[in-house]
Amino acid sequence: MENVEKVKQLLVVSASPHIRAKKNTSVAMRVVIGALVPALAYATYLFGTRVLIITGLSILSAVGFEALMQKMLGRKITITDGSAVLTGLLLAFNLPPGVPWWIPVAGSGFAVVFAKQLFGGLGYNFINPALAGRAFLMASWPSLMTKAWLEPVGGTLSGIDGITAATPLSLLKNPENYGDPQIIISQLNDIDAIRNAFFGKIGGCIGETSVLLLLLGGLFLLFLKIVDYRIIAGYLGSFALLAWLLPTKGSVLFHLFSGGLILGAFFMATDWVTSPVTTKGRWVFGIGCGVITMIIRVWGGYPEGVSYSILLMNVFTPLIDRVTRERVFGQMPKKGVKK
């Protein structure tokens, strides 16, 4: 007790609470990136090292454009938060493996510059940058984006033997272009084709092939509560229900395992920034994604529909948040929620 010095104090006086949970934004971003690595490794095996070049270019240019924009706009450079890396990675996952090198650069550039930084940067963008980048590429170079497929090692692009020119979903949309529609459709819904899709012996965009690996990564995020189960359950649930109800030629499993649905539901619809914050809103958002995806697949001009449905729901997110407010504790039912 004698050596108790009078502490000349320079104490930190911050607001309560004085302890914080460990979760922080950049760690969460890194975990999401980690959850996607198995799928990336597998895609490299399927389509060759080209995948790594495309993905690397996509990430590098996302990070580069982010730094450049932040410098130009006089913002703090935050490229270490991992969000640009994730945007680049997700964009690459949504590209066909055979695209030329400048495609990922242009896509990431659009994603980061127009969809993210011009809106104010992380947290202020209202649409998912990676999906915006992909939509931009689809609109500008449609043929590259829908044709630059590569044959996977040990499988076919379509997942069924003998047909190598189309992805399963475009095959489902126009089977008559490739042979006897009856036979093709039954082959597509056959357990073998479904198994190929699940394990990823199938072509498609870089990151969407192996349902199994995506599911493992996605469940890991769900377990860590980094992604919200309501969005995923709403999306997959409504989607599966409609796949069963609507007049589509594919089976429920076929639809669930194709066209990047798992990638979209677990990794893109759940993007924090662009999905609703209310509990009810997250259900609405997920269900909306599922319904729109299925409508596009059945009646739309594109075979898959995942990215457009999410983008569309991104646009509705502010509205959803406004109309699905939380019930405040002690708020009496009925006479609540005034406008």
């Binding site: 979760k23 920034v273 662009t274 914050v277 997250r282 939380e326 405040v328 504790f329 708020q331």
Partner: peptide
Amino acid sequence: GPCVRCASCVDACPMGLMPTE
């Protein structure tokens, strides 16, 4: 950092508020 709209605060609030908003 900026609010990333992760909704963790909404899930955690015992009063049913939307802290981010």
